[in-house]
């Protein structure tokens, strides 16, 4: 209704405004995704023009590829680390910043620092932090009386070392989301709780936490979608190794395509990643829709 006056613009003008963005987006995002699917139907090295049509053959191989499932499992592990550790740590940091301690501005800056570094720089820094001989992490362990650990070389431990770094990098991001949400909680709610004689534990569980649920949901969505994008930190710190212990879909796709030159197979992995992301988004949107609907009813 408001729009009656708005649309004094003809289709051509609208198109002219949108065209530059649309063109770049189609050429570098939409067309490549379609082409990735097309490539995934061929056996192709990428080095020569020789291509053999194999239909869904690459997907069948993928289904039977043990490393693919291992990589997928590691991606799921990233999601779990994010939801179960990063988000709570972010919440705790946000609560510290919203408490009445002195030097909040200082803590705010220091807590946020890790999120400002490039992932490559973080990866390289932590390779040295985790260095078995000269690294500070092992030095601290030894000082505390533990024996040194070969963090990135031990297949059973490497994945947790990398996950630790991911948590270090991204907790501040969730801290910011929670801090904004906490600032938005009306004081009246706490005053009402005071009148009812609530202690601070009650206030947290009955006032703060329930009002933060939308933020927790948003954060979890970001964590799930973000985990599929993980690549840099694994590529830099372990390259997916030792063996395939820290392999994730991103590193596996990269290796198949750009190191082994199995571009067809790599395309199949890439398109599978796209499908997984798509399915996740659809599920999340549906759940979100149901949650909202229920919210209106109740």
């Amino acid at each position: 209704m408001i729009s009656s006056k708005k649309k004094r613009m003809n289709a051509w003008t609208i198109l002219l405004f949108i065209l530059p963005a649309l063109l770049v987006y189609v050429v570098y995002v939409v067309y490549p995704i379609i082409t990735t699917f097309n490539y995934s139907l061929f056996d192709w090295s990428g080095l020569s023009a020789d291509t053999t049509f194999v239909g869904l053959g690459n997907y069948v191989s993928l289904y039977m590829d043990r490393i693919f499932w291992l990589a997928l499992q590691n991606n799921v592990l990233i999601v779990m680390a994010s939801v179960l550790l990063q988000i709570p740590l972010g919440l705790i940091m946000a609560l510290i910043l919203s408490s009445s301690i002195k030097g909040r501005r200082f803590f705010n800056v220091m807590f946020f620092l890790p999120y400002l570094m490039s992932t490559v720089a973080i990866g390289l820094l932590w390779i040295y932090m985790f260095d078995p001989v000269n690294g500070p992490v092992n030095q601290i362990l030894m000082w505390l009386g533990f024996s040194p650990v070969s963090w990135l070389a031990d297949p059973a431990i490497a994945i947790y070392a990398v996950l630790f770094v991911i948590i270090w990098q991204f907790s501040p991001f969730y801290m910011i989301l929670f801090r904004a949400a906490i600032v938005g909680i009306p004081d009246e709610l706490y005053e009402a709780a005071d009148i009812d004689g609530a202690n601070s534990k009650n206030k947290f569980f009955y006032v703060t936490l329930p009002t933060l649920i939308p933020t927790i949901v948003t954060s979890s969505i970001l964590a799930i979608v973000g985990s599929l994008k993980a690549f840099d930190i694994f590529y830099i710190m372990t390259g997916g190794g030792p063996g395939h212990a820290t392999e994730i879909l991103g590193t596996y796709m990269y290796k198949q395509g750009f190191i082994n030159f199995s571009m067809g197979y790599a395309s199949a992995i890439a398109f599978t990643m796209f499908v997984i992301a798509f399915v996740c988004v659809v599920i999340i949107q549906t759940l979100e829709y149901l949650r909202r609907k229920r919210g209106i009813l109740s």
Binding site: V29, P32, T35, T36, V225, A266, M273, A277
Partner: peptide
Amino acid sequence: MLPIHATLIPIFV
């Protein structure tokens, strides 16, 4: 929401 990997090979080509 897109994983960048889904576009890498075509952009490379």
